[in-house]
Structure formats: C-alpha cells, structure tokens
Amino acid sequence: MGIELNHTIVHVKDRWAAARDVGGVLGLPEAGAYGPFAELKLDNGASLDFMDTEGEIHGQHYAFLVSEGEFDLILGRLRDGGRQWWADPFKRQPGEINNGDGGRGLYWEGPDGHWLEIITRPYGSGA
C-alpha cells in the first residue's frame, strides 16, 4: 500500500455549519458524527474532520481535484448561492476561472477564513 492522506482536521467555529457549507458546495452527502468531529467524507476515502475551536482560527487551504462535470456543478452552486470566486488565490481575478495545466480552476472563501480550491487537472500535469 502506498502512502495516502486519510483525514485532516479543519478548525472552525461551528463544525456542523461548516461541514454543511463545504459539503453543499461540493455536492457531497451530509457529514456524519465521529467523536468530536463533523466528518465530511470525500470520494477517495479521505475525510475533512470539522472540529469546533475556541479562539482565533488560522485559515488553511484545501484543494479538490474534480472532473469537468463536477467543476460545472460546483461553479453552478457557487453562482446560485451568490458566492464570489476568483481565478487566483490573491483575489485579483474575481468571477473568473483559471486554465492551469490545461484544465480549469477557481478559489472561494469557505467557513472561518479557509480558502477552498477546485481544479480539473493536478498541478504540474501539463497543458
């Protein structure tokens, strides 16, 4: 067996609201309870484990590799929800999509300052 990411903890103010927000945009099934976490399972077996956190939360970056069809559905959910997205992580290209490595990508602000990204081609995969 190779090395794979199994889960990561996402610190938030409200684990259930954050899991609903991220899962809703990505089109994933509702999160389940696992200990102190709202566990949002991804299609590759990894999970985002949302955990209530007191005090300051330092935003992290989470990138998701999606198919072209999933990209369109996620973009539609962002539009329908009145959410802003950017082609770049510096917010210089609002409402645009990037074409890195011959695919498509975009960024949006998730719960508690976390920065979320979808891409249709892995970084470095070529044009």
Rank of each mutant, 00 (worst) to 15 (best):
Q93F: 10
D49R: 00
G126H: 13
Q60V: 12
F90C: 09
V12G: 01
G102H: 11
L40A: 05
R20H: 04
G32T: 06
L65K: 10
E117G: 00
R77S: 06
I74C: 06
L48D: 03
V12K: 03
A63P: 14
G113W: 07
V66R: 15
L73W: 02
G105M: 01
Q93C: 03
H58G: 10
G124S: 07
G69K: 10
G59Q: 14
A63K: 11
Y34H: 12
F64M: 13
L5M: 14
L26I: 12
Y34V: 07
A38Q: 03
A33C: 02
F50H: 01
L40N: 01
Q84N: 02
L116T: 14
M51Q: 13
G103W: 08
R77Q: 11
G45F: 10
A19N: 06
R20E: 14
H61N: 15
L28D: 06
P122Q: 15
A17Q: 11
P111I: 00
L106Q: 02
L42H: 02
D21G: 04
D14A: 04
A31T: 13
L5A: 06
L78C: 08
D43R: 14
V12D: 02
G23E: 07
A87E: 12
G102Q: 11
N98W: 05
R20M: 00
G82Q: 09
E96I: 05
